[in-house]
Design a protein around this nucleic acid. Sequence first.
RNA 1: GCCCCUGUGGCGGAAUUGGUAGACGCGCGGGAUUCAAAAUCCCGUUCCCUUACGGGAGUGUCGGUUCGAUUCCGACCGGGGGCACCA
Length: 854
Amino acid sequence: MSRYNAKATEAKWQKVWADAKTFKTDTNSDKQKYYVLEMFPYPSGRIHMGHVRNYTLGDVVARYRRANGFEVLHPMGWDAFGMPAENAAMERKVHPADWTYDNIANMRDQLKQVGFAIDWDREFATCDAEYYGKEQQLFIDFFKNDLVYRKESWVNWDPVDNTVLANEQVIDGKGWRSGADVERRKLSQWFLKITDFADDLLDGLKTLDRWPDKVRLMQENWIGRSEGLKFDFTVDETGEKLPVYTTRPDTIFGASFCAISADHPLALKLAEDNAEMAAFMEECRAGGTTEEAIEKAEKKGFNTGLHVQHPFDPEWKLPIYIANFVLMDYGTGAIFACPAGDQRDLDFARKYDLPVIPVVLPEGEEEAGFTIGDEAYTGPGKMINSRFMDGMAHTDAKAAMIDRAESEGWGERTVNFRLRDWGVSRQRYWGTPIPFVHCDDCGVVPVNSEDLPVKLPEDVSFEKPGNPLEHHPTWKHTKCPSCGKDAVRETDTMDTFMDSSWYFLRFVTPDAEAPFEAGAVNEWLPVNQYIGGVEHAILHLLYARFFTRALNHVGRTDIKEPFEGLFTQGMVNHATYKDTNGDWVFPELVRNREDGTLFRSDNGLEVTEGRIEKMSKSKKNVVDPDDIIDQYGADTARWFVLSDSPPERDLLWTESGIEGAWRFTQRVHRMVLETAKDLPAAGTAVPTDLSDSALQMRKAVHKTIKGITSDIENLHFNKAVARIYEYANAVSAKSEGAGSAEVKREALETLILLISPMMPHLAEEMWKELGHDSLVSEANWPKAIEEFTVDNTVKMAVQVNGKVRDTIEVAKDMPKDEVEAVALASEKVKNFIDDKTIRKVIVVPGRIVNIVAN
RNA sequence: GCCCCUGUGGCGGAAUUGGUAGACGCGCGGGAUUCAAAAUCCCGUUCCCUUACGGGAGUGUCGGUUCGAUUCCGACCGGGGGCACCA
């Protein structure tokens, strides 16, 4: 018997599907709709195993839903704008567009080889003017609805390359290319008012019950809603107001200083004639801006010499410091500090020798001896040293303080968010141009919609540092859309997260004149199952949720949430290898010696195996999907990425694992070919009279259908794979007598149907081998016949004092007392009860009997 | 620093969510087939004691709740992730 030729067979069926447009979606179908989407890829050049895993997961869902009668939308596109294309342009002198479209062509070919059930007719790239022109339209819509504004904002500035750097391009405070010290600069930039939706984005999380809890929690923390008190201090020396926000108004009598951000207006004003202070503020700005950097940095301050009056005692003066841990973006950019109740404040107070007054007494502590050492106390407790709040629980004190401030009129209850508005300006070429014009007379004016898209100029140079749009000779010179006078185009382009915030809408009606057709979008959205990496848990998913709300707000859709179900898959890992020179070695070059040591096949150097890590080019622990498909076929690769690990966890890629998967594809092929000729014709009914072994097999068939169906519904693909292995063993078992041939056919056909979402090419080939003229991709998902999924008897463990001593097989519906009698009758059990007295017998029907004796 | 996740044989992982721990796969050992190999098939495989029959221990560590804990609670130890211009 010939072996299964995966390569030829897979190409054959891919052509059949493509020619027949098997996976084309009818947007206006009457069938129940199901939208399954994997996060679209960045066209980096070649697909990697992470892509194979991601798109295979989605493909199983898509094919499974199709088989269950849904009209499935499963599209593919390209997240095609972004920095790597510009880097390639600089390094290799290729145009970003050429580089990107070449990469797309490559990756499209690669993806098609894996045999995904995708409607390729809907494909687009976000760098198509056709796409980003619509995005510009939406941006102008948002502008007209007051969701877009401009403000000054800080950027990382590379003074040598004359360019704005992304955080990842700043390494130890230096520009990644120039090595120059990075400066912070203020630029006028475009923002989207995501904060308008902060409460709604938070509330919406509660409705997303098919999202991982982890992702919802991350978003919740990101939005960071807090309730507190906002009030004005009075600056003692000047009488000015200094607004502060605090989430701990209960600790106000523990206040020992006031801290303001280095970007605070008061600080800026004071620094005008204080060079030392200005230098300190510069130093604050030079530090990292990430939360981590701020939290880890040493707490430093600069005494302004000014004071504020305590709100409850005008004679009580608190010094005002400029501090490096206070952010201008959060709250009012000014805080009062209670060192006893906040670690940062405490570190600061110790450093500058400021008072530390405990105000919250932990339970079990005596007020008399209680002091704060090196650790602030942030937990619950009773108020002390706090006048009218003394004795209250700290939470009650917080409410009482806010109430008092409000009734006395000097402060107000305030909800604050950590979430900041979304800065979408990028000073780069390869992105969606922001469709605005700067006119001396009319100000900032949107481009007229009939003039969209504002296309990127093609003749650009990356020789000069900085934004190519900025120094293009003609592109930015235009006429004002409003008054017609000479004017200048905006040269900022949009954050690529804009592009990925609505692509899932465009897929529904990819040829629409408008960005999308609302009617169809309202029918198809939200996406029923969205699948992608957890690295997008916050930004992409939050921006997409915001964008969807914004579109709803401007009247373009009826939907609020874009993704009903979310699944975040794990990474693909592989062992790392290093040779004796300390160079990383590709796994394909590593060979085994008899004694278990490793060497390089190309130069014979000794190799040691290192840690298991995420596949990455830098460590060379990568396996190229093309090589795997070439060697084993796409089905084997698909089968392997589905097996072994739960999809939400990391997958360990191993040579032996992929070989195991390959053996199974061969096994299925062999099982069908060896047996097909002896089977009754396709469509033969299974008789009701069955021999014992035939009945046994039929039960396995229907139990398996039931199990696999539930596994796939719950995305437990690794369990489905394990169950199919078990099932294959059952189908291979001998069965003879009445009905055995008919059951064998049913069993084999079921096997093929069940693997068809996972190994579609093999399934197609075997379906034909079993005598079918139709495509298995068009076949219905098998239905379990309930009567064959249940057994009349059940095996139960019998424990004595919690230890299993025997198992009994009893009728499924046997009453408890009878089960107990059977259990007690067991010789083995009797031996263990011995002369002990039976105190209690617990019978859990169908599960266990536990006899407690002593 | 803060927040979150995770820990089960030699390995990846199952365990109907409080009810027989180790399904299934990989690896390993033994056997069959073969002139031989590849491929394939069968048997065994948590650890310790025992020829066997059996018995004991066991889900990172230490406690707790329970008739019963991989599962729930507390503390600790190890590994991983996120923290605003990478996408």
